[in-house]
């Protein structure tokens, strides 16, 4: 494979010269970065920096939006995702958590069992095991174990967001992407989810898009700073906060001088 040379050897996700545009408006351009296996990779930046578009490009959500054009190359485990015939198989290996919790209009059990069922799992006993394991890992099991048959959309916001995480885990993803997950979640639940993420790092690669700079500092091993559709800085998270940055704008942003 020609691209193997330019791809970081130990990279789980490798992005080269990524360009994203909606119609004529460029959302992101010239992004090169490697996300390593089993790291938490933070992406920070103000609104309209291109953070969400970046995530959408990774799991090929551009497919259903004819307006969205993606250029450049994204490698997943060394495989270029550009020419995939079966994007569904790619998406099954990437879990996504959206900013606002999405409890699908079905009960708690079915919410978590949906992805395994889509994958063809029919065995009730195995589904029971998956559902319990994922709910436990999302720190939700104790709160819902007695009411697995209530509608997912009736849970509280923080519970729904953990339900979303449990659902994302149910497909045993290799990469978990979270897009500003704490936007609609109270601080206590946010801390619980952050603890969950720290444990999950052992098993998977996590991409954490956040508008809370301190959240990136608490969790991320390395962090990228996006600004106005460009990746301004990538580095070890602690360096960004101790001022060892290449770009003055990064320091201004993490110190809260703008954004």
């Amino acid at each position: 494979m020609v691209n193997a040379v330019t791809t970081g050897a130990d990279a789980k996700v490798s992005v080269r010269n990524l360009e994203i545009a909606y119609g004529d408006a460029t959302a992101l351009s010239g992004v090169d970065l490697d996300i390593r296996e089993n790291e938490i990779f933070g992406v920070i930046g103000p609104a309209n920096a291109g953070k969400t578009s970046f995530l959408k490009a990774l799991n090929r959500m551009d497919m259903f939006n004819p307006e969205m054009k993606v250029g450049g190359d994204i490698h997943f485990s060394g495989r270029n995702t550009r020419g995939l015939r079966n994007v569904y198989a790619l998406r099954r290996r990437i879990g996504v958590v959206f900013p606002l919790p999405v409890g699908l209009p079905m009960n708690v059990y079915d919410n978590v069992a949906l992805a395994p069922r889509l994958g063809g799992q029919r065995n009730r006993a195995e589904l029971d095991v998956i559902v319990e394991r994922c709910l436990r890992r999302a720190a939700l099991w104790d709160e819902v174990k007695d009411r697995l048959d209530t509608l997912g959309s009736l849970l509280s916001g923080g519970q729904q967001q953990r339900l979303t995480i449990a659902r994302a885990l149910s497909q045993q993803p290799e990469v978990l992407m979270l897009d500003e997950f704490s936007i609609a979640v109270d601080p206590v639940t946010t801390m619980r989810i952050e603890d969950v993420l720290k444990q999950l790092r052992e098993e998977m690669t996590i991409i954490l898009v956040t508008n809370l700079v301190q959240q990136a500092r608490r969790l991320a091993d390395r962090t990228a700073f996006f600004l106005d559709g460009r990746c301004v800085e990538i580095g070890v998270t602690e360096d960004l906060f101790t001022g060892e940055v290449r770009d003055q704008r990064t320091r201004d942003y993490v110190e809260g001088r703008f954004g």
Partner: peptide, 25 residues
């Protein structure tokens, strides 16, 4: 649409999105 997006992100095909999420909803 967020229901559709959530199901698509899980790797549901378009027909699976319709049959498992949209029609029941």
């Amino acid at each position: 649409d967020r229901y559709r997006e959530a199901a698509e992100a899980m790797g549901a095909t378009r027909w699976q999105v319709i049959a498992k999420v949209v029609l029941p909803a």
